[in-house]
Design a protein around this nucleic acid. Structure first.
Length: 329
DNA sequence: ACGATTTGACCTGG
DNA sequence: CCAGGTCAAATCGT
């Protein structure tokens, strides 16, 4: 199918290139920052990190935001642009499915959904398909170790519990409260990995695409990246830096509330996919900007083979040839 | 009544 | 084959 980028995109190609080059440069700097914080990758972000990494990510986010806006031909000249606005822009272009971006990233989810759709179509076989799913192969997951079960600000609903081999404690599975209402694909599982002191490992999969305040951080008004906004408003950073005066603590299945000061050393983060977890934040599933040009408009022939995450990852790693990217424009 | 949790069944990837 | 991830009926809590 024939498809071409909007004229505004073509005329702004140079500016796109500039923005991306800046993003690449900043990403390179950020990578060096990460290297400096290898052992304590995440704790360095929050309280005692000095903020340099945050600043860099701010700038990178800004670059990408500007790029996306230019691509949309709706640049806003230095204006602070929130993710909400970006989504609004993108929704005008094509698919209104805010989860499509994420779907393109998470093969397992796609498979799962495909299967589910398939099940729905063949209603005769729909009944009793428990446990029928596609296990995620390449998990874009990250873990968070805490000494207590922390409230991460999202609405979770438990959907399963499992005893894990060679583990004293069973693993609890949670999905986003708004999984069905808003097709939010975020899941996590929590497992106690140590007794004294108690240590819990929470493994997150997928991003929240829901917009409910209960689901996004209740202390933040949006799950969307707020480009150009203060650091605190980045979900990425709020995850680490938001003040959690209240923490839920499990004790023999009894949940008690405990006042604790926000500590960063309590939060150890491990990515299972290098920087992809960061990319998940950098590119919110709701940022359907590329997608808005997408399949419904016939761009799929090009962009389907255009691994968004890979591109962003490579941009992050500074290994992407900008001309290579611009060929897609 | 309704939403959340529990729990055994079920299915898949490795 | 089996450990892990998910489903959904039963149960619980409000």
């Amino acid at each position: 199918m024939e498809w071409s980028w909007p004229e505004s995109v073509l005329s702004n190609g140079e500016r796109v290139k500039e923005e991306l080059m800046q993003g690449r440069e900043l990403a390179g700097q950020l990578c060096r920052v990460f290297d400096d914080h290898k052992s304590t990758l995440v704790s360095g972000f929050g309280g005692g990190g000095g903020g340099s990494a945050e600043d860099l990510v701010d700038k990178i986010l800004g670059s990408f935001a500007n790029t996306l806006l230019i691509l949309n031909g709706k640049e806003s000249d230095g204006e602070i642009v929130s993710g909400d606005q970006i989504q609004g822009i993108s929704s005008g272009g094509g698919s209104a499915d805010s989860s499509s971006w994420d779907a393109n990233h998470t093969a397992a989810v796609i498979k799962s959904e495909d299967f589910y759709e398939e099940s729905c179509k063949t209603t005769s076989t729909f009944k009793d398909r428990r446990g029928s799913y596609k296990r995620r192969k390449t998990s874009h997951s990250w873990t968070r170790d805490t000494h207590a079960l922390t409230d991460d600000g999202h609405g979770w609903r438990k959907y399963g519990q499992k005893r894990i081999l060679n583990s004293k404690h069973s693993r609890n599975y949670y999905r986003c409260t708004h999984k069905f209402e808003q097709s939010c694909k975020a899941t996590k599982y929590v497992q106690q990995i140590q007794d004294h002191p108690p240590m819990f490992r929470t493994t997150y999969h997928g991003n929240h695409t829901c917009r409910d305040l209960d689901c996004t951080s209740p202390r933040e008004s949006s799950n969307f990246i707020r480009f150009g906004d203060t650091k605190q408003n980045h979900p990425f950073f709020s995850f680490f830096t938001s003040v959690k005066k209240e923490e839920l603590v499990f004790k023999d299945e009894l949940i008690i509330k405990k006042e604790i000061p926000p500590t960063s050393d309590d939060r150890v983060m491990t990515s299972h996919n290098n920087y992809s977890w960061l990319c998940d934040y950098l590119v919110s599933p709701d940022l359907t900007t590329f997608e808005s040009f997408g399949p419904s408009n016939g761009v799929s022939s090009t962009l389907d083979e255009f691994d968004h995450e890979d591109v962003i990852s490579r941009l992050m790693m500074g290994s992407f040839d900008l001309d290579e990217l611009l060929q897609y424009i």
